[in-house]
């Protein structure tokens, strides 16, 4: 199990603009982290960096003290929820959820069971065989969450995972995500929803590419 992802002195540029500037951040397992701040402040980029899905121009991203590798094996330990879901529209909900499991080479029976469980955990078991393109935005988002959670990855990264959900669903999803963190996984959520920030154990705020606030305050 991964215990820590550490970003040290990380910087990302696009042209002349610095999206991330000298960011130092330690993300610990079991401690849910919310990254907040306006869009364009680098939330998504920070999340992608932590997930090994983005290159840092400066600084390092360390996974348990070692530089993060970008091979598919590392990928398989992460579960990602992205803002545009990135679901394959012509696959069913279950097929989408099954993808990372199949990528890991699990046997068919296992894949079936785990994917259906994941869908149940987000309340979409009845929609398992519906094509994703026929689901509503909220349902699609929940499928994306289920896909990220399927197979209990060691690290869960979520970018605005509840933006399209109504209140009860939002609460439910949040609880599901937080449970992962409580079970000892790494959970990072990028959000600007104050409710989500509230619910997480820890939050950091990004402004113009720099970490400006931490709550609860950093203990040395």
């Amino acid at each position: 199990m991964i215990s820590e992802i550490r970003l040290s002195g990380v910087g990302v540029r696009v042209g002349a603009r610095a999206i991330l500037d000298h960011v130092d951040l330690a993300i610990r397992a079991g401690e849910s982290l919310a990254i907040t701040g306006p869009s364009g402040s680098g939330k998504t980029t920070l999340l992608l960096l932590a997930g090994g899905l983005q290159d840092a121009a400066e600084g390092q991203v360390l996974l348990d003290g070692r530089p993060m590798a970008r091979d598919p094996d590392t990928r398989k330990r992460f579960g990602v929820v992205l803002q545009n879901h990135g679901l394959v529209a012509v696959l069913t909900a279950q097929e989408n959820v099954a993808l990372p499991l199949q990528a890991r080479g699990l046997p068919a029976v296992e894949v079936e069971r785990i994917s259906l469980d994941a869908l149940a955990s987000v309340g979409l078991h009845p929609q398992a065989d519906a094509l994703v393109q026929n689901l509503s935005g909220g349902q699609q988002q929940r499928v994306a969450v289920a896909r990220a959670l399927a197979g209990s990855p060691e690290v869960i990264l979520a970018d605005e995972p509840t933006s399209e959900l109504v209140a009860e669903q939002r609460r439910a999803i949040l609880d599901t995500l937080l449970r992962q963190s409580r079970e000892g996984r790494v959970l990072v959520i990028a959000t600007h929803d104050p409710e989500v920030v509230e619910a997480c154990d820890r939050s950091v705020r990004l402004m113009d590419g720099r970490l400006v606030e931490q709550s609860p305050p950093l203990s040395s």
């Binding site: 992460f78 990602v80 990135g86 990372p100 990528a103």
Partner: peptide, 16 residues
């Protein structure tokens, strides 16, 4: 392209 990037992100190999 976006779809493929996401699939790569969730662990599918380039070969796949």
């Amino acid at each position: 392209a976006f779809e493929l990037a996401v699939l790569r992100a969730i662990g599918l190999s380039d070969r796949t």
